[in-house]
Amino acid sequence: MKILLMVKQVPDLSASGMDDGKVPRGGPSVLNPQCEYALDAAIALKGEEDEVIAVSMGPPSASGSLLRCLELGADRAYHLCDPDFAGSDVWATAKTLARLIIEKESDFDYILCGQRAADGETGQVPSMLAELLGIPQVSGCHRIIRELAFLHAWRGMSGRIERFELGPKALIAMETGCNVHRLPSMEDFLAAKRKELTVISRKDISLEKSDCGLMGSHTVVKGVHVLTESREGIKLHLDDTSSAVDAVYEAVRRRDK
């Protein structure tokens, strides 16, 4: 089984927080948290004969996230790294990823992705990629298991759990996963440094300039606004628990109306 693992490097928002609603640039980066779930799932599915190939598009620093995938069990990696890819929106990104897959790894069985990236928060690339490749997709998953050549994927949807059975040539996007954090060993680090990491430029996958980067994008972020809570809080000064409970109940009842 060949699994393609699509990952993204994002700013480490857990350490930096936001700047007026905008994602800060220039600080440290990490593997996108939802891509971590996809990585965990891919490695858990991988048998001895199988191959997990990590793919990321991004600046040179994105190789750090691919290194993490390789440390934790991916077999090799592609890094789509070219100034011509800069400024890609979701459409241009999906198109570039699809072209790499068609050109280099068209014999894949499954594609695993994080549902969305912590910086852009669009959640559209997985679906667009599946459409461009003409394959079925399940979004918002939290669990995958393998049964021979088939995968079973679970997701929560409108208060119920859905289970899908997928044959080869399908895409699964992970919303959550296992919370146990994995740490590579120095042996894993050394092994990862010796695994194959191929840097791919636009020309390597015969992509026109007009199909990628800013030129191939249909959307541009013009501004970001922070929405603030407009409803004011209420201060209650009360002496005993019983009247406090009554007052809170009354305040909630009034607000519901």
């Binding site: 480490d12 857990s14 990490v30 750090g64 590579p184 060993s185 120095m186 050394l190």
Partner: peptide, 13 residues
């Protein structure tokens, strides 16, 4: 041994 270690290069880790 090296397999009895943890390591991290990303700053979050």
């Amino acid at each position: 041994g090296l397999d009895r270690t943890w390591c991290a290069h990303e700053e979050r880790e």
